[in-house]
């Protein structure tokens, strides 16, 4: 127990890297989810096809392979080496964006057909229809699964340890275990708590956004556990 302060300070050094990787990954995930999710609903076959290749390509391979590919193979092909943290954020975003695209597509598709018809009857332009009528309703549907996706992303950020990003997991493995081998349980106990707390923060923020989005529609937020739909594979 007397090593606790030093353990905390070493893990504290890794915390910003974990937080930056997770936040960066989440931002990229949101952009790609909406971009690819909307393209999956495009009327043009070619656009849908190309987007499908992205989505299935990233959902069908291992995240570790994607990480190693971008970090070790891409530089050989394009002659430009990414900083580990940037490569990591790119993979977290690209990978989870592919899952998020399906969430966005499903949520938009779940908006009742009458809503489209009503918007057309009011002679809203296609862009207005999407922005004013469809997306606000779809947003409420997609927030709970996106919460799960972001927590998955937080957990995945630990694989950045494999390409030398000094985030929490790597600090524990490379700095603490070799130096404080007797405190294995304490070290991992603290690491587990760090990830639990970060996950709790994500959930708290997402709940707040869920309430805001539901209020905007004049609805009360309903939150049921949809375990079967949580399965993001």
């Amino acid at each position: 127990m007397e090593n606790l302060p030093r353990i905390l300070s070493v893990l504290g050094d890794g915390l910003p890297e974990t937080v930056i990787a997770t936040l960066g990954g989440i931002v990229l995930t949101i952009v790609l989810s909406f971009g690819a999710g909307l393209l999956l609903l495009s009327p043009w076959r070619v656009v849908r096809g190309v987007t499908r290749v992205y989505v299935e390509g990233f959902r069908g391979t291992s995240e570790v392979v994607q990480l190693f590919w971008i970090y070790f193979v891409l530089p050989v092909l394009v002659g430009y080496q990414l900083v580990p943290l940037v490569a990591g954020i790119a993979v977290l975003g690209l990978n989870h964006g592919a899952y998020g695209a399906e969430i966005v597509r499903g949520a938009i598709r779940s908006v009742p057909r009458a809503q489209y018809e009503g918007a057309i009857a009011l002679s809203l332009s296609p862009a207005q229809r999407m922005r004013r009528v469809i997306l606000p309703q779809a947003l409420v549907e997609m927030l709970p699964p996106l919460n799960n996706l972001f927590i998955q992303l937080l957990k995945s950020s630990s694989i950045l340890a494999l390409i030398t990003v000094p985030e929490v997991t790597r600090q524990a493995r490379e700095v603490l275990i070799p130096n404080f081998g007797d405190d294995t349980f304490l070290i991992f106990g603290v690491v587990f708590v760090v990830y639990l707390l970060l996950a709790a923060v994500i959930t708290a923020i997402m709940r707040w956004i869920e309430r805001w989005a539901a209020r905007r529609l004049g609805r009360r937020p309903v939150r049921q556990r949809k375990v079967l739909e949580e399965v993001a594979v």
Partner: peptide, 14 residues
């Protein structure tokens, strides 16, 4: 709620 990689390390060292 915690990363699989951390759990792998935990079992490996604990």
């Amino acid at each position: 709620s915690t990363p699989l990689l951390v759990q792998v390390f935990f079992l490996f060292f604990a």
